[in-house]
Amino acid sequence: MAVQEKTTVRRAVCPGSFDPITNGHLDIIERASRLYDVVHIAVLINKSKQGLFTVEERIQMIEEVSAGYGNVVVESHHGLLVDYCRDRGIPAIVKGLRAVSDFDYELQMAQMNIGLSGVETLFVPTSPTYSFLSSSLVKEVAAYGGDVSHLVPALVHRRLVARIAERK
């Protein structure tokens, strides 16, 4: 019996605000890129939050730092994540979990998403190296002059330092 050719493209989405993208985000994206044929990065727009970087700047940074994976698509989205998934035929959401406190909230979201649309959520434990890391923490430490160069990609660090200097 001949082996049947693979005709289905395995897709997943990694959602977030990515303001800015951190090495923790990249760890999850890189791991998802090994499991899926195409990984969509959905930069979610929250009009009630003023980001340090514009959505367009975030997209550009993510495209640059993830280019080496070869199977990452970066887009913005405003609205329900399940609508983004439905419009693109994406059956799975990949989320990184840093701690038990993340799980409580993310489990509720996962249950809501599968109930609304049948989209599954896969939880990936964060590498212990990045278990404390968040974009908010990176911005706060950088704003006070702390060294966050080991927490974000080099090009993101340069832009972060420049943006903070602009705002002083």
Rank of each mutant, 00 (worst) to 15 (best):
S136E: 05
V3A: 10
G145S: 06
Y144E: 11
I164V: 15
T54N: 09
I41C: 02
R158H: 08
G115I: 10
V9W: 15
E63F: 09
S76C: 02
S127C: 05
I41P: 00
Y144D: 12
T22L: 12
Y36V: 11
A42F: 01
V82Y: 01
G96D: 07
I90A: 03
V73S: 07
V38P: 01
Q50D: 05
K95H: 09
L116T: 04
I90F: 01
F18R: 10
F103Y: 14
S48D: 13
V55K: 05
V65F: 06
S117N: 08
G68P: 08
R98M: 10
L133C: 08
A165P: 00
Y84G: 00
I93P: 00
V65C: 11
H25D: 07
P153I: 15
A154S: 14
R86T: 15
I29A: 02
V73G: 02
H150F: 05
R31F: 04
I29K: 03
K139R: 12
A154K: 14
P91I: 13
S66W: 12
D19V: 03
L116D: 08
T121G: 06
I59G: 01
V119Y: 00
P153M: 15
E63S: 11
L44P: 00
L81H: 01
E166L: 06
D19E: 10
D104Q: 15
M1S: 12
N23M: 11
F18Q: 12
E75W: 07
F132H: 11
T7W: 13
P125S: 10
M112K: 01
L97D: 01
K95D: 04
L133Q: 04
N23R: 09
L26P: 08
L133S: 04
G118K: 07
Y69H: 14
Q50K: 14
G79F: 10
A162Q: 14
T121P: 09
H77G: 09
G96T: 12
V148T: 11
A142Q: 07
L80Y: 14
A42W: 01
L160V: 11
A32I: 04
D87S: 10
H150R: 05
T121R: 06
E64C: 00
I90V: 13
V161Y: 02
L97Q: 00
L122Y: 14
V148N: 02
G146D: 00
A142P: 10
V119S: 00
S149W: 01
F18D: 12
V141I: 15
V82S: 03
K47V: 13
V39A: 03
L160C: 09
S17K: 11
I164F: 05
A42S: 10
T121W: 12
H78D: 15
R11N: 08
S136F: 07
D83C: 02
E166C: 06
V152D: 02
G118L: 07
Q108R: 05
S135D: 12
N113E: 06
A110H: 04
H157S: 08
D104C: 03
